[in-house]
């Protein structure tokens, strides 16, 4: 059974079509890398699945049609990490992470539930913020803030994580930490990741499948070797990507 399936998803704003007939399928263990130049429709794809953009076509979550599901039930299956976080008030890390348990809480009060609390503490420890659980979000660095939001996703415990540029603006060490963390997460049962990643080196290393978008249409979709060929990638980006990327590292000394 697939965890997430898209059939001919299109998104238009007025006369402008931003995404045209995208189909894809995620099964347990998949990490799908969505790549493509700016404006290809990568973030729009995530918005459509997450319910933030109007779409046509069918989205199946588990084996249910998305439109027939309650938002809480969708949240138990899919969690989204958005591209940017601007936090306004000084919530603590723990308060943020415990919001991840929202789709599981029952009734009006239902806040104190041992299961929920345990999941929250585990998630905070998993991302390495155990010592900062009571810190205000406003005092965290960019990397710590991103990890706090990832902890919220872990607490939410969905089957599919959708990540829009999870390591944008983070230094290389953080990038590696976060991608390793996600690889560990997806290795467990009934889990899959769909992520938008700009760094093609990272995408090639961590992904198991790839979707190359170009001007809103699918330029290539399939296993890594199929998508990551010079001919396919270069035509979408209009640049000899591999040559350029290797030239970036060729000047290094041992």
């Amino acid at each position: 059974m697939s965890l997430l399936e898209l059939k001919n998803i299109s998104v238009s704003y007025g006369d402008i079509t931003v995404l045209k007939e995208v189909s894809l399928e995620l099964e347990s263990g998949d990490w799908l890398m969505v790549i493509g130049p700016n404006g290809a429709g990568k973030s729009t794809l995530i918005s459509a699945i997450g319910g933030a953009a109007p779409y046509t076509g069918d989205i199946l979550i588990g084996d249910q049609e998305r439109t027939s599901m309650r938002s809480r039930d969708i949240a138990r299956r899919i969690g989204t990490l958005n591209q940017s976080h601007s936090v306004g008030y000084s919530f603590s890390v723990r308060e943020l992470v415990s919001l991840g348990r929202y789709p599981y809480r029952k009734g009006l009060i239902g806040g104190k539930d041992e299961d929920n609390e345990r999941m929250v503490e585990e998630a905070i420890n998993d991302v390495g913020l155990g010592a900062m659980a009571d810190r205000s979000l406003l005092t965290l660095s960019g990397g710590e803030l991103q990890r706090a939001f990832i902890a919220q996703l872990f607490a939410q415990d969905p089957n599919v994580l959708m990540l829009d540029e999870p390591t944008n603006n983070l230094d290389l060490v953080f990038q590696k930490e976060i991608f390793d963390l996600l690889r560990e997460w997806v290795s467990r049962k009934d889990r899959a990741i769909l992520s938008v990643v700009h760094d093609l080196g990272l995408a090639r290393t961590y992904g198991s499948k790839a979707l190359l978008l170009d001007k809103g249409t699918v330029a290539a979709y399939g296993c890594m070797d199929e998508v990551f060929s010079d001919a396919v990638i270069n035509s979408a980006y209009g640049l000899d990507i591999r040559r350029w990327m290797s030239s970036l590292y060729s000047r290094w000394t041992d």
């Binding site: 933030a52 976080h85 601007s86 306004g88 308060e95 919001l99 929202y102």
Partner: peptide, 16 residues
């Protein structure tokens, strides 16, 4: 709480 953190976040955790 979720809205105060961000509308996108509120949607992601399953708030209508």
């Amino acid at each position: 709480n979720a809205f105060a953190i961000g509308e996108d976040n509120a949607r992601s955790i399953g708030i209508d």
